[in-house]
Design a protein around this nucleic acid. Structure first.
Lengths: 132, 132
DNA sequence: ATCGCACACGTTATAGCATAACGCAATTGA
DNA sequence: TCAATTGCGTTATGCTATAACGTGTGCGAT
């Protein structure tokens, strides 16, 4: 499963996210793309929907923001769960995968006969630099 | 650490959440409390802030909603991580705690010298009844 | 007792996040 | 060629959350 060629808008949004230091909100992305002709939120959200679908971008539910996947080449959907540590001081995000956590959660869900579709694991706190 | 006596507004919001079948948005709560004199979102949000602080209510980040804690008596802050399975068909939420997952995540965070403060683990999908 | 402080509350206004609904253009494949 | 699909642009709207102001009440310290 490989990522399709991106359209113009998808490419612009993906570039902005890739260059960013940390996660960006949809409206921040919009502002950064006004010079490229973006005028409305939907232009951003539609591109984001596709990028999320392709697995090259992640949505951080707890801060209503989006971040480029840390492993752009391999498709992120093929890993198991994705987890994020989000620094509330500097905004940086560390993405990580842990099969142990993955299996444990999946086993539990299985025991409940719950069919998992999307998952969100986000830890907010302070990174090594900011913990002071 | 015991839960303080709730104020009138906090009590009303907590009651609504306790009686609800599933999670409710702040504005849904507001609507349910109009007859008791609620007029503005802040009345709900302020009560929710306290209830979250007391650990008797959880916030579901991925659906912008709130749910009463499944174990009202024991303080939920004292458990480790809390995880939720959210059914996208019927809206029901299953709350669970798993020390294995907890430890595993905490170990990883520790290895990164990341100081965790708040966590979100939410799995969306379909529950046993709705999976059909 | 009264002053000062902390806290809950009420209200209005505004900010921030996300989608509905319309129509047009380009592409593809039967 | 026609129909279906997909992306795009625009306007309008809805949902989620907080800022900023002022009021009232309880309570401890002086």
């Amino acid at each position: 499963m490989t990522t399709p060629v991106l359209t113009k808008n998808q490419g612009l949004v993906f570039d902005v996210l890739t260059r960013a230091e940390g996660p960006l909100s949809a409206y921040t992305i919009l502002d950064k793309l006004r010079d490229q002709g973006f005028r409305a939120p939907l232009q951003v959200y539609r591109a984001l929907d596709k990028l999320l679908e392709y697995g090259v971008v992640h949505r951080l539910e707890s801060i209503n923001s989006f971040v480029a996947c840390a492993h752009p080449h391999e498709n992120c959907h093929s890993h198991g769960l994705v987890a994020f540590a989000i620094c509330e001081s500097c905004g940086q995000v560390i993405e990580f995968h842990d099969h142990e956590v993955d299996h444990r959660l999946m086993d539990w869900l299985k025991s409940q006969k719950f069919k998992a579709e999307k998952s969100t694991i986000e830890i907010r706190g302070h990174c090594a630099n900011c913990a002071a």
